[in-house]
């Protein structure tokens, strides 16, 4: 139960950080995948069950504010986490360099899959332009190591991980 409460607080913190980044970057048409970053952190540090659950609800959080395709982000986040777990054996996610590269690439994949889903279900491919696409992904990649560092401290303090 305590574990659930700690992760719930972590989720609340994720939504707040997401809000801050939206406030700062959305006027420039840049969408930083903060919820994806947090999902990857949980996936990297906690069990797969928590990773998938966190990603699913993180996606639902984004879907909640959308007026169409409710469940779209939840599906994309689940797919991204599936990809992440498939490649996690071959990568060192503790290394800052690989964290940046993997998050950037996964963020790009996320945007493309979501755009494709939007094309299928609403008939419009969501595309904010190549600059927004690249910068959003890169910022997500750069954000992860910073948040990873803080999150790890929180996980140790709250007893979610041992190290």
């Amino acid at each position: 139960m305590l574990k659930f409460i700690n992760i719930f607080f972590f989720f609340v913190a994720a939504t707040i950080v997401h809000w801050i980044f939206i406030e700062i970057f959305s006027p420039f048409n840049i969408i930083v995948g903060v919820m994806l970053v947090f999902s990857l952190i949980v996936a990297g540090e906690l069990s797969q069950a928590w990773g998938y659950s966190f990603a699913f609800f993180g996606g639902l959080f984004l879907d909640f504010f959308n007026n169409v395709m409710f469940g779209g982000y939840a599906l994309v986040f689940t797919i991204i986490l599936f990809v992440f777990y498939k490649i996690s054996d071959k990568i060192d996610f503790k290394d800052v360099g690989s964290q940046i590269v993997i998050t950037t690439v996964l963020n790009m994949i996320m945007v493309l899959i979501y755009g494709l889903l939007a094309q299928i279900f609403t008939g419009i491919f969501l595309w904010h332009g190549i600059i927004s696409f690249c910068l959003g992904a890169l910022l997500s990649g750069l954000l992860l190591p910073v948040l990873y560092f803080v999150a790890k401290k929180y996980f140790v303090l709250s007893g979610l991980t041992n190290k």
Binding site: F56, D63, G71, G72, L75
Partner: peptide, 19 residues
Amino acid sequence: VLRILPLLFSVLSLFLIIL
């Protein structure tokens, strides 16, 4: 359970989109 979990969430999401 871990094998089913991504499938379960994917089906649930699809269900939400299609509804």
